[in-house]
Structure formats: structure tokens, C-alpha cells
């Protein structure tokens, strides 16, 4: 039930201010016109281009991410990645690590590795047994939050997560340290690439964008007091990006 003034009235007053008639713009807008088929072609081109330049793209991703404040670890394979996560957990002295679900964890089975190091790695999901507030409390008390990535953008050093079943919005936010494990095939070059891919997914998925998309580009930070940068305000103070070089 819409509150405020009826949308028809509001839109009519906007139209009146613009002095235009109802209806679409005189000139059609290119980025609203493409069919799913055309977006498919663009997406294929993006995939082809990114796969063709993969080593360069991964170097760029690693470089930009480091500039943005990620601790970047290049990992040849799952073993390297596990070693890194375990030694990080040891260094931090964490007892509990929250983990989101992601395909990457079949190649990088962090639960067992961390358990071996005496760290409880628990899946941050709100199953029927767990009350919402209890999960959140546990998330807030976990020293480490571990996620995969749906995409990573080399241009900006961003990890993109699309929260959904198995991937809480808060795993990468409430614990003071976040680790993102990124597969090489999920790295794309530019912001434009991301939005083409997302538009394709949107139009292929019957117009559901999913409720949330998050760019994570380094630690939480502020410069609100005397322009002095401080990390770890409301989100993680420390973020680690483990970049798997091989698929």
C-alpha cells in the first residue's frame, strides 16, 4: 500500500515541470534496449577477453586490491590457500571462524583444515534450529569471516558478493577480519563487465536481480575526524584476498 501522494499525481507534476507528454523518451536508450540474446553475446565476449588475458588480469587484480588495502595472497592451488588461512587464524588467535557457502570451498576445504588447527569453522546459515539473534551474536563473536566471491573486479580491486541462501550479508561484515577466497575464473576486468553480466543474469532470471549486491574493496574505513584515516569502524579492520591462480 503506497503512502504519500498517488504516483500518478507525482509523475504528472514532474511531467508538467518538464513540459513533456507522458511516454518513453524521444530517443530510445541504448542500454535498455538490448535483448537477452545481445547481452549474451556481450557476456561471451567479456568472458573470452578476460580468459585470454588471465595472467595479466590476475596481476592487475592483485595489484589494485593491494592498493585498496587488501592483504593479497596469490595461491597456486587449494593447499596454498589452506595454509594461508590456517596460519592467519593462528596468528590472530581466533577460536571461531564463520564461513559462508561457496563452490570454492570444495577446492579449499577450510572447515577441516581449521578444525585441525583447533579453530571452530561454522557455516553461518540461519537453519531452522538457529534463531536469528543467536546467529548474529555468534557472527559478531567470531574472529574471522570467510567467504568466496561471485566476482572480483580488477579495475577497482573489489570482491563482489551476492548474498543469498548460504551466504549471509553479515559474514563479511561483523567479524573483525574477513577472508575472501577468489577463483581465477571469477575475476573480471572492469565495472562495465560486471554490469553487463549482472544485466544478463537479471534478464535471464525473469527479472530478479537478487536482493543485494555488495562491492567490498578493502577494509572498513573512515576519515571523519580531522581527515585522519582509521580502519575498522563498523566493518572489518583487516581484509585478506586469497587469489587462486589456477582453476
Amino acid at each position: 500500500m503506497s503512502l504519500g501522494i498517488p504516483s500518478a499525481d507525482f509523475l504528472a507534476s514532474v511531467r508538467d515541470a518538464l513540459g513533456r507528454e507522458a511516454g518513453p523518451p524521444a530517443a530510445a536508450y541504448q542500454h535498455l534496449l538490448e535483448s537477452a540474446g545481445e547481452l549474451e553475446l556481450q557476456a561471451a565476449e567479456i568472458r573470452r577477453r578476460n580468459a585470454g588475458d588471465l595472467p595479466l588480469l590476475l596481476d592487475k587484480m592483485a595489484g589494485t586490491a593491494a592498493l585498496r588495502g587488501w592483504n593479497v595472497q596469490r595461491a597456486g592451488g587449494g593447499e596454498d590457500a589452506l595454509d594461508y588461512v590456517v596460519s592467519l587464524a593462528r596468528r590472530l588467535g581466533v577460536e571461531s571462524a564463520a564461513r559462508a557457502e561457496s563452490a570454492v570451498f570444495s577446492a579449499v576445504p577450510v572447515d577441516a583444515a581449521l578444525a585441525g588447527a583447533g579453530v571452530v569453522c561454522w557455516p553461518a546459515v540461519y537453519d531452522a534450529d538457529r534463531e536469528r539473534d543467536a546467529v548474529r551474536r555468534r557472527l559478531a563473536e567470531s574472529g574471522l569471516g570467510i567467504t568466496g566471491a561471485d566476482y572480483a573486479i580488477a579495475e577497482t580491486g573489489s570482491v563482489i558478493v551476492l548474498p543469498r541462501r548460504g551466504l549471509s550479508r553479515l559474514v563479511s561484515l561483523l567479524p573483525p577480519v574477513h577472508v575472501a577466497i577468489v577463483r581465477a575464473q571469477d575475476v573480471i576486468d572492469t565495472l562495465d563487465d560486471l554490469f553487463v553480466l549482472r544485466r544478463l543474469e537479471y534478464h535471464s532470471d525473469g527479472g530478479d536481480m537478487g536482493s543485494y549486491l555488495n562491492f567490498i574493496s578493502g577494509p572498513s574505513r573512515t576519515a571523519d575526524i580531522e581527515q585522519t584515516i582509521v580502519v575498522g569502524v563498523h566493518g572489518p579492520r583487516e581484509v585478506h584476498l586469497v587469489l587462486l591462480d589456477k582453476e
Binding site: 589494485t64 592498493l67 585498496r68 588495502g69 553461518a124 546459515v125 540461519y126 536469528r132 577497482t156 580491486g157 573489489s158 548474498p163 543469498r164 541462501r165 548460504g166 551466504l167 549471509s168 550479508r169 553479515l170 530478479d208 536481480m209 537478487g210 536482493s211 543485494y212 549486491l213 555488495n214 562491492f215 567490498i216 574493496s217 578493502g218 577494509p219 572498513s220 574505513r221 566493518g235
Partner: peptide
């Protein structure tokens, strides 16, 4: 900044299957 630490894109409320939101 080249980009901010976060860019968040919200499309409607949480979907039924989502963990949270």
C-alpha cells in the same frame, strides 16, 4: 579514492531463501 570500501546495491527486501536482509 578509486572506489570506496563498499558499494551496496539493494533490490527489494530479502528473498524467501536469503539468509538475512
Amino acid at each position: 579514492q578509486r572506489i570506496t570500501s563498499y558499494v551496496s546495491m539493494v533490490t527489494g527486501p530479502k528473498r524467501a531463501a536469503d539468509e538475512d536482509g
